[in-house]
Nucleic acid binder design. Structure first.
Ligand SMILES: [Mn+2]
Ligand SMILES: [Mn+2]
Ligand SMILES: [Mn+2]
Ligand SMILES: [Mn+2]
Lengths: 223, 223
DNA sequence: CTATAAATTTAGACAGGTCTAAAAATAAGT
DNA sequence: ACTTATTTTTAGACCTGTCTAAATTTATAG
């Protein structure tokens, strides 16, 4: 249908516009895709030609409905494969992302549908991200960055917004993962690092950078 | 490592040299890959440059050991994925080949190894083809074409050498698959079609073209 | 051995994608 | 408003892989 490259551009634009209403910039895409902005400019022209994006030169881009459908479908496949790799093949959540980056481009309706069924129609991937439905709906979870939450409130870790191997391995070492209960005990003003207690036990010291990449909700159990 | 295209050429050369000692010709590759012979010539020059094939202009090609390793590894992945698609996802043997054509290019050592383990280290794919080992050994099954076997001998179907959807669906309709026991009752001299009895029951009429693509061995039970 | 046919390779063009360097447009600073 | 800095786009080149048409080599048939 589309080339792998086109798909990667559409996915990048989707991810960059996911959490804000602003137009996506050429440089932002170049940085995410580790390519040059001149290459991005070129590709934007082509994608606009195919009506996959709205593009005004020098002004940035947004996805058209057609472009959004393509992007969401890729993300659906990416996350379904990640569930498979972790749940069925027993691979670690820190190593599956690069594999899913390639598997996501394979496009057979029956394969996706069967994979979904085999996994029991999962709602979230191993990093806590929502799996878009076959019709392209994405449930936007209302979790917040740990770095923006309040002291002394029972919290539940529901997502990780940095999928690099290094970061996920670090969380493993800390014994911190999806479903971990935690309370912020103290926030250091000078570097915004924090002390937290996990699962009513061990106390950890998390840098602001780490806390920014952990998503949490206020724990149900206290309501 | 290599591009998908290079991999497809190496696989094609492997398949064409699998059952004969002769050099593989440019035209044979072009036909298998549904491309033009001028494109093949070009690619052969590049593959020889990378020492993946032995190539003498106008004389045909053979794989080097390095080239063979690449080809066999692709085939290993192709067949492992086919087992997964049929055994775990419940897809039909007639529809998995195009999917495996794409999955075979995804190359992560740990993924292959885990997939192999998940499937219980299968020896054959859903079409009866042997799955190469991780170290590149391929057990060459000594089955023969049904079209070349003798009358009145108990036979066992062990492989299918045509993976097209149309052919496999036809076999499904005939109730003929891997593991089917059969005896050749009669061979019509004028068109070499044959009457066979399967599983000691139904009698079928198979064209020579069909019989050529069914692989069988003399059934153990009679020895 | 020579003429023709078949197979193969080369030449030249093109499409998709990337890069560097240069030009153009927009944003920022005073 | 004017000048400078930043962002973005264009120009020109290159790489991979494909094609058609033409040239070359090898095979086949008298
Ligand atoms: Mn991922
Ligand atoms: Mn994920
Ligand atoms: Mn196959
Ligand atoms: Mn097969």
């Amino acid at each position: 249908m589309h080339t792998y490259t086109e798909e990667n551009y559409l996915k990048a634009i989707y991810k960059l516009s996911e959490h804000s209403e602003e137009e996506v910039t050429t440089n932002a895409i170049a940085e995410l895709l580790e390519t040059k902005s001149s290459s991005v400019s070129d590709m934007l022209r082509k994608l606009a030609e195919k009506d996959l994006i709205h593009y005004t030169k020098y002004r940035g881009v947004t996805l058209t409905e057609a472009g959004r459908q393509v992007a969401v479908r890729i993300i659906r496949k990416h996350r379904l494969w990640e569930v498979f790799l972790v749940e069925k093949l027993g691979l670690g959540w820190e190593e599956v992302h690069p594999m899913a980056e390639e598997l996501e481009h394979i496009d057979f309706e029956r394969l996706i549908e069967r994979l979904d069924a085999f996994m029991g129609y999962p709602k979230r991937d191993p990093h806590g991200d929502p799996i878009p439905s076959a019709s392209g709906e994405v449930e936007m979870p209302r979790s917040c960055k740990l770095s923006e939450m309040n002291l002394a409130t029972p919290l539940l870790v529901t997502g990780i917004s940095n999928h690099t191997t290094a970061f996920l391995q670090y969380l493993d070492k800390l014994d911190l993962g999806l479903g971990t209960k935690l309370v912020i005990d103290e926030i250091m003003p000078f570097d915004r690092s924090m002390l937290v207690t996990i699962n009513q036990g061990k106390q950890l010291h998390l840098s602001h950078e780490v806390a920014k990449n952990i998503l949490a909700v206020v724990s149900e159990s206290q309501r």
